[in-house]
Design a protein around this nucleic acid. Structure first.
Lengths: 206, 206
DNA sequence: ATATGATTTAACCAACTGGTCAAAGATATA
DNA sequence: TATATCTTTGACCAGTTGGTTAAATCATAT
């Protein structure tokens, strides 16, 4: 069992633990995750988990922050940028799907967290600068300019996020129901980069 | 602690258990649920759970079937009926949202199950008669008739389901981010009965 | 009244869980 | 080489969990 890394640089025990913990937590959720399994995946003794991170909660917290900070800032930055609404919809669809393609488990992870500790999620979003009012102002402005028909920011954002995230959460069911294989599903996901912006933009374009 | 029902009819111990189990399982998921908590909620001794249902798994299975059979047949029936695509989109949006309004926890429950046992879900859906090919045939026909632009059935169904379900799963986050109170959120959900069909139909209408 | 079967309970158990700890290995420093 | 510090380990612990069981209670028919 050689978990030692050849370069001897970044892959120390702590990194090993974080990687294992991320895999187990995102796949099983907090309740379903076992410290022993994380230790096994990392190839180390269970006590080491508590040596580096005091407790299961603290270890989870570390993963949680890591995940949220690699995931959401980019998307929120786009939403809060001075692009047009249409451009924002296109960019978020592309970035969000691309990111989820590389980390397919993150969607389930975040949804697990919604039912376990939604307040922390909200706090984290607000911390990164997410604010519905900015989008609402932009919608009002573009509606007055005759570009779009008015819509509540909550609806637009809910539509955008749900259309991007859902296929990653429901993947097993969608694959099972449609008979798609892995390649076909990847193509399906890729197509959504076009379909989602088309759907949302067509619906609000004047 | 009077759990006895006055009518003396349907609310026997078994019903009491099912009701409690449904509440606990849907809110906490299988891993997060505790048999003791279910017993407490039902106001009975924990051993009675095992008297009526052999194990936690069996009890969960009972809830799972009950939930799926009260929830999905109606929506799938609409999708498989001889209505037009636009009518189906409108009816499913309305029925699905209305059903989730009355059972807001079901969305989270089903999503928990997707990561725990997706095969069972797929099997159940197929059992109820869900079939993507029927929708695909209809799409092709209506596209050839010049009513809509062609789209994969997988995309259309994924769009429809995700737009309906997402606000119920992400409710705490959406409320926290937007500052909506409970009444405002109910209104928000109600509005989606119009917005979802509008969004999806506008996007595929020729 | 009482025998009989179904229901309910308190007490208990083995397995598992997160977490601790003392001791053993490493590693660097002197 | 001796020593001090950091890392890693196996053994262990207390609390929790799903599940069992023998006895008590209740209902019902005779």
């Amino acid at each position: 069992m050689d978990n030692v890394n050849m370069t001897g640089l970044d892959s120390n025990t702590e990194q090993l633990i974080l990687k294992a913990a991320r895999s187990v937590f995102t796949n099983k959720g907090f309740d379903g995750a076992r410290m022993q399994e994380i230790a096994d995946v990392a190839g180390i003794n269970k006590a080491l988990l508590h040596y580096y991170f005091r407790s299961k909660d603290k270890l989870f917290e570390a993963i949680f922050k890591e995940v949220l900070n690699t995931v959401f800032p980019k998307i929120i930055a786009v939403l809060m940028s001075p692009l047009t609404l249409f451009e924002k919809i296109e960019k978020v669809s592309y970035n969000y799907i691309e990111m989820l393609k590389q980390n397919p488990d993150l969607a389930i992870f975040v949804f697990h967290e919604i039912s376990r500790n939604p307040e922390r999620l909200v706090g984290n979003f607000k911390n990164v600068g997410a604010d519905f009012k900015i989008i609402q102002t932009q919608i009002t402005k573009e509606a007055e300019a005759g570009i779009i028909i008015p819509i509540k920011a909550e609806h637009l954002i809910a539509n955008l996020i749900s259309l991007c995230v859902f296929p990653f959460i429901a993947r097993p069911v969608l694959m099972g129901m449609s008979g798609m294989n892995k390649d076909e599903y990847d193509r399906f996901i890729e197509e959504r980069k076009q379909i989602i912006p088309h759907t949302l933009i067509t619906a609000i374009k004047k």
